[in-house]
Amino acid sequence: MDDQKHLEHEQNKPEDAERSTENPEEMKQSEENSTEMKIAEKKEIEPKKPEVPKKKLEKGPTKKRASIGKGSILVEPIKRRSFFSWLTLAWVAFTAATGTFFGMMLRFMFPNVLFEPKQTFKAGYPDDYTIGEVTTSLKEKYGVWIIRDTEHIYALSVVCTHLGCTPNWLQNERKFKCPCHGSGFRKSGINFEGPAPRPLERYKIVLADDGQILIDKTKKFAYEKGQWSDSESYLVV
């Protein structure tokens, strides 16, 4: 019954109730919550003058800590006795252990075995390719263009040297054009427009025993390193 009366009292005179919460003396009479309430009220007051109490708080503990450090017997004698203290050793050990741990995590991201499609394949006979044309039929399956000019056959990588998109061969304009950022390459693979920094790469191309063309994508030849003169980078026909 008392409770109900109390509630009614609060309802009927809301202003009174409000005052009661803000008056510390009456707070004692109410329930457990009242202590928390006081804290709340204090918190509310603090931000009005945030600077003064904060500074005091900051100064207080640091002074104390400093005095503890000076007075401690443990640190100074050891420093005098040995070149490195146990503390240094502990820190070094800790750093080394943490470093190793992160190193292991990093190494974990590089597996030893990769499951990738086969990188060498046979691409038919040299006579399958017309002189002066770019063969795009192998692009989808193997990711190469095979180009035959008057003397050579070479295999161009279909990966744009800018950011790895796949350029398209535009028959009318006689160029490779990358749709991502507009790099253009000539039939030889030399870059001439757009942001590509260097020519397309060529793959290793040799004749297999059965007379077919054998292309090995694991070996690449870059023009700017002068590797296009390497005898494996083209096939003499």
Partner: peptide
């Protein structure tokens, strides 16, 4: 809900203060 139904100023303050989610906010 410790503070009951927030009906008055005190209850409203407590409802924010006592809730783990609402106390991201200040009371006032």
């Amino acid at each position: 809900i410790r503070s009951g139904v927030p009906r008055d100023r005190r209850g409203r303050m407590l409802s924010v203060l006592n809730s783990v989610f609402l106390h991201l906010h200040p009371v006032r």
